[in-house]
Structures are given as C-alpha cells and as structure tokens.
Design a protein around this nucleic acid. Structure first.
Lengths: 134, 134
DNA sequence: GTTTATGCAAATGGTTTGCACTCGA
DNA sequence: TCGAGTGCAAACCATTTGCATAAAC
C-alpha cells in the first residue's frame, strides 16, 4: 500500500512532512528519537512543533508506538504487525538499539493475576555494552 | 545507625532537609516522586532546587536509586541492601506501586551475552489494574 | 469550501545551574 | 575557618499549546 493510502486509511491527510516521516519509519526498524528524526528530515523545511504533532497523530493512529528507554526523551518506532510485541537491548556506549526475540515468562504475569492484578502489560529492556564496544 | 552517622559515613553533611529526607526514605519503601516527597516535607522550609540536589547526592552516594516508570518524572527509593534488586507493578488507576519478588529468566541474559553483550543490566516493570481498582 | 495541518511564538513541567550567602564539622 | 549545602532567580530541554495562515481533499 502506498504511503498516502496508508495515511488516508487512518483518516490522516498526506503532507510532505507526514509522508517523509512514514518513509523513515518504514526504512528504520529501531526506535528513533525526535532529534534523530530531525536529522533524517534534513532538507525538508518544517517546524519542530509539527513534527511532535505528527508523532502524536501517528501514535494515536497506531502507525507507530512510543518507546521510553529512560533517556529523558521519547523514541518512536513503526508498528510492524508481523513482530508486534518485542523488547530492546541498548548499548550504553554507542546507543545502538536492538530488538530481542524473548519475552518474560508467563509465570510472573500469572502470579500477578493471582494477587489481584488484571489488564497487565509490561516493559522490559536490557542495557549493556555491545560486541563492538566491549 | 543514626541518620546523621549514615550521612557522615557517605561523606555528606547532615542538614534539616537531608535528615528529613532520610527519615522519609526509611519509612517508605515504595518509590516516591519529588512531588510526593514535597508533600511529606510539608512544614519544613526548603527550596525545590535543594531537594533535587539532595536527591542527586543521595543517588551518587547509593543511599537511594532512581526509578523511572515512564511517567514523565522520576521516582526515588531507598536502597535496602537486604532486598537490593527487585521490580515493580504499578496500578494504572490508583498509581499504587508494589515490589515483586520475581526477576527475569537467566536464559535471556545468557543469550544476550552469547550475542556479544557484556555488563548487562535490565529494567522490568508491570502495569495493570490492582485488586481494588479492578 | 471545509476540514485538517502547519508555522510561529510563547508556555509548560520536570529538573538543573550560577551565584552569593550560610551553615555544619 | 572553610568547604559543602542552600535560597533565589534564571536557564534548560523535551514537548505542548494558542492562534492565524495555508494546504489537502
């Protein structure tokens, strides 16, 4: 499906900024910060406020999701329905972020349900030094 | 050990703000936000900037640790060496935070080490509705 | 032609910093 | 006494908002 169509399918208008953003998210599967997006949008004339407004709209439309790795700012990554739920490892030195194919053991959520919790979600992230930085 | 002694042991001077903070952290084992600390410090005359400076010093001195639950602000909890490493569940409705006695399976870190990562740490938090809010 | 998105500028919220003053050891 | 801690005001940084203009459909 064309980028314009994808936007229209979510009830969003297609604009230069939005389609550039969509293209970036299609090409990059690791979570990007607003700053990183800005550097990838170099050449395009736009306002930072519009960037954040787009990111909010995209998030609401489930085109992307917010990733918070405790860095003091947010990251955004495209929602690929093939590998929807996943976790990340970030290198503390080069800040490279990789997706990891493991999830938490069911037993923990099962235990929490037994103690009364419902509608459970979780967050799990790893931090360390990657092979190249070690 | 007296609070004053604990501070001195870390090379920190004892002041009204610092000893009040220490007392709060000793009495509350769930992670507290700066705002929550301020309401517990009611009656004491101090500057918010000093509060953050104390929290930073305490963190550096390993008296407390920063807990980031993705709320847009930090929480701080005392480091109790008896139960040093642990995780949290937060209720999305009443914001109650509980400590949970489970950790991630060793296999995940083992796998990450095999792919080249070293000095690994992790973060794992659960979110849901607690028994009372369900 | 309407609705929606954008640019600009100013505001927000959590937190940090510079600097002169004050206090604890 | 003397360095560490504080108050005050201003700065910071990521993000948000109000409002008038401009572009998409």
């Amino acid at each position: 499906m064309e980028i314009t169509e994808q936007l229209h399918a979510k009830g969003l208008k297609s604009t230069p900024l939005r389609s550039s953003l969509m293209k970036i998210f299609q090409d990059h599967h690791s979570p990007l910060s607003a700053e990183e997006l800005e550097s990838k949008l170099k050449g395009l004339d736009y306002d930072p406020a519009s960037l954040f407004r787009c990111l909010k709209k995209f998030t609401e439309a489930q085109l992307i999701r917010v990733v918070d790795l405790g860095e003091g700012f947010h990251r955004f990554e495209s929602i690929c329905h093939v590998h929807s739920h996943h976790h990340h490892v970030m290198c503390n030195s080069c800040k490279k972020i990789e997706t990891i194919p493991f999830c938490i053991p069911k037993e923990i959520e099962t235990h929490l349900k037994k103690t009364g919790y419902s509608h459970l979600t979780h967050r799990m992230d790893f931090f360390g030094l990657c092979g190249s930085c070690s």
